[in-house]
Amino acid sequence: MTYQSFEDLISAMTQEVCDNMRRAIETGKWADGRPLTREQRETCLQAVIAWEAKNLPEEQRSGYMEQQCKSGEGEPEEQPVTLRAPDRLQ
């Protein structure tokens, strides 16, 4: 099947196709054991992100992280940061 655009491809994808692409990205190979090329990995990643953005609520998308540092007043809470010089090997 040929698609006219990337959007057509995303519209035609099913949950199963998205899951297969996600698994291929994670393992670096297709279900039959063939390795993904760099281009295939990039294309699959773009397709998974686009499909999830269109079909899943934010909290169910790959990479979703609930914000853990919330203050009670709606203002961002300051987080102290300590910078250290890297240890030098001698």
Rank of each mutant, 00 (worst) to 15 (best):
K29G: 12
S5D: 08
Q79A: 10
D32F: 09
G28E: 05
E52P: 06
E73W: 07
P86C: 03
E66A: 13
R22K: 15
P76G: 10
M13I: 01
I25N: 09
A24Y: 01
T2Y: 09
L45T: 04
Y64G: 00
R23M: 14
R38W: 05
L56C: 06
K29D: 14
E26K: 09
E59P: 01
A47G: 01
T27C: 07
E58Y: 12
M1I: 12
Y3E: 11
G72H: 02
R22V: 13
A85K: 14
E52M: 14
E77A: 12
Q68H: 06
C44R: 07
M65C: 04
E16W: 02
G28C: 07
N55Y: 13
E39R: 06
R22F: 12
E73G: 11
N20C: 05
L89N: 05
L9T: 03
E73P: 00
E75P: 00
S11G: 02
L83R: 08
K54W: 04
A47E: 02
A12G: 03
M65Y: 01
T43M: 13
P35K: 11
D8G: 12
G33I: 04
S71A: 15
R41E: 15
M21I: 00
M1T: 11
V81D: 01
E16F: 04
Q68K: 14
G72V: 04
E39M: 08
T82M: 08
T2F: 11
M1E: 14
G33Q: 03
E73F: 13
Q15A: 15
T43A: 15
M13N: 01
T82Q: 10
K29H: 15
I25T: 05
Q15K: 14
D8R: 11
A50W: 00
Q40Y: 03
E66G: 08
Q67N: 09
Q4F: 08
E52G: 09
L36H: 03
Y3C: 12
K54E: 12
V17W: 05
Q40F: 03
K54I: 03
D8K: 10
Q90L: 12
Q90N: 12
C18A: 13
W30Q: 05
W30K: 10
A85S: 06
G74M: 08
E59S: 09
E73Y: 10
S5F: 06
E7W: 11
A50G: 04
G33P: 02
R34C: 07
E73D: 15
G74L: 09
K70R: 15
R61F: 04
A12M: 02
L89H: 02
P57W: 03
Q4K: 13
D87H: 07
P80A: 06
E58N: 13
E73K: 10
E78D: 03
M13S: 01
A85C: 04
E75I: 04
E58S: 15
E77H: 02
Q67G: 04
T43Y: 09
Q90C: 11
T43V: 09
Y3K: 05
N20L: 08
R23I: 06
E77Q: 05
E7L: 14
W51N: 09
E73H: 11
A47C: 07
I25S: 07
L89W: 01
K54N: 08
E78F: 05
P80M: 06
E39I: 06
